[in-house]
Each structure stands twice: as C-alpha cells, then as structure tokens.
Nucleic acid binder design. Structure first.
Lengths: 138, 138
DNA sequence: TATTGTTATACTCTATAACTATA
DNA sequence: TATAGTTATAGAGTATAACAATA
C-alpha cells in the first residue's frame, strides 16, 4: 500500500513494532487463562525469589512502587501470592500452592509462545536474537 | 539484586525490555527538538508518500482512525503538514516546506540514535538484528 | 454497502506527590 | 536520613461507538 521502506530499515522501528506485535499476541494468550502479562511476569520473578519485597520486584521490572500496590493486591486476592512481615516495615512475598499451579499454566503458555516466536526467525539469525536484544538494554 | 535469569532467557521478555528502554531514549531525544516519537514517525511516512491519506497512514502504523485526528491536527497546527481534498470524501496529506526542515532535524536525531543503538550490539550479532526483528512482525 | 473523516467518551496504564511508619 | 508501603490523583495513550457524507 504505502512505501514503508525508510522505516523498515531502522532497527529501532523494527524493534518497537516487533515488541508491540508479540506483546499483543502473548497478552491475548495469557488472557485466555485469565492472567495479565505484567502479573505473570511478576509471579515468575517472585517464584524465583521467594521472600523478596514489593520494592525489589519493582526495581527489577521498572515498575513504580505505587503501581506495585494494586498489582500485588490482584495476585493476593487471586490467592497466588502471600505476604508475611520481614520486620515492621517490609514484607516478604512468596508464591502460594495455588500460585504454583497457576504458574505451571503460565509457563506452558509462555513456552509455547516463545517457541513460535523464535520459529518465525530464519534459522541463521536465531541464535543472535537474544544476545543482541539483551545488549540493548542491560 | 534479584535472580532474573529465567526472564532473561526469554526472547519475548528481552524484546519488550529492549523496545521499552530504546523507545524511552528516543522519545527523550526527540523531546529536545520538540516533537513526539509517533508524530515523527507519521511525518517520515507522509514524506515518503506524498498525497497519502489519514486512513492509509493509520493502517500502516496500526493507529486507529479516530486517533489519527488529533495527531494530524498537531502536525498541521505546527505547520508541518498540509491537506488538500482528493475528492469530496478523502484528503491528501503532504509535508510542507517547514515540515521538511523539521524532518531534517528528526532524521539527524534518529540517525544518531540508531547508530548508538546498533553500536551496543556485539559485532557478530549486528547484521542479524534487523532481519530477525522484521521476521517477527511482518 | 463500504469507506473517510470526525466527535465524544471510556478505559487502561503509568507518573507524581504526599503521607505514615520504620530501618 | 533513607526506605517501605500506601493512598489518591493526574496525565498520557489507546480503544470503542456512533455519526454524517461520500465513494
């Protein structure tokens, strides 16, 4: 339809379009099992770091402290995480048994998504994608 | 701080983080010359497709028709684009002289941004990034 | 009948400021 | 004095529905 060539030659543009398209795809897949992409990401991070705090999670994922509140409340209300005091100021977060079951579903969906994602990349480029991407933001 | 390993091994996660980080960077750079990232993108697309329509631009960039209205109004109010009727239903969009001057600035900023972006990618991965990304969404 | 451009509005996501309590 | 958790709210960005006019 339109000439999009000068945009398509820009890695930054391709990066945004690819991220938007794939995030929309994964969001739709996770919606089918009733969980949001951010929530699933937080859940995975907590599972690998039992006893971590809201602040620590927020720092790693670049989520503001204030925005962690309703997010963790959702996970707690859904019975996926539980909190217990570390001291009188902080509280440690852990994934519940129910959360682990849900996490198994999440991991299945994500594994399938990631497999189909990487399959779309021509073989000779495949192994370069992850290191190239991580070099861009880490 | 936290163990982020299982997330970092997911191309989809790395893709989102890389896109968010680089988009924030470019947004800040373009802000210094007083233009938004979306507006700059639309301006580039119109420049390469003089006489195109609002609908056509929206379709290529996945922007809803309704959201094109205030966007094009901004560009028009800034004197960067002009519209003239194609028939009594559609109108063709073109970049004005002032728009072309602004576009030169935009291209300079973006070229610098893209150069620094690709420099962060280890050399052996560099040539693989663009084709891998475009394979993901095109 | 489908498309263009538009208006108005709802919704989601994120950012900011301020506050309390505790390390 | 800095940090953790929280509340309330503002703002930006996007989505949805409806409309008139024209192809």
């Amino acid at each position: 339809m339109l000439n999009e060539q000068s945009l398509l030659s820009l890695p930054g543009y391709a990066l945004r379009r690819a991220a938007n398209a794939t995030a929309a795809d994964l969001t739709a897949r996770l919606d089918r099992i009733g969980i949001r992409l951010v929530d699933a990401t937080v859940l995975m991070l907590i599972a690998d770091n039992p006893g971590t705090t809201s602040s620590a999670v927020g720092k790693v994922l670049d989520i503001q402290r204030a925005n962690m509140v309703p997010l963790l409340k959702r996970l707690e209300d859904a019975g996926l995480i539980e909190r217990e005091p570390i001291d009188r100021k902080s509280q440690g977060i852990a994934v519940t048994a129910g959360g682990k079951a849900r996490l198994a579903e999440v991991r299945r969906v994500i594994a399938e998504f990631e497999a189909e994602l990487i399959e779309r990349v021509p073989q000779r480029h495949r192994d370069h994608l992850l290191p190239a991407l991580n070099a861009l933001w880490r």
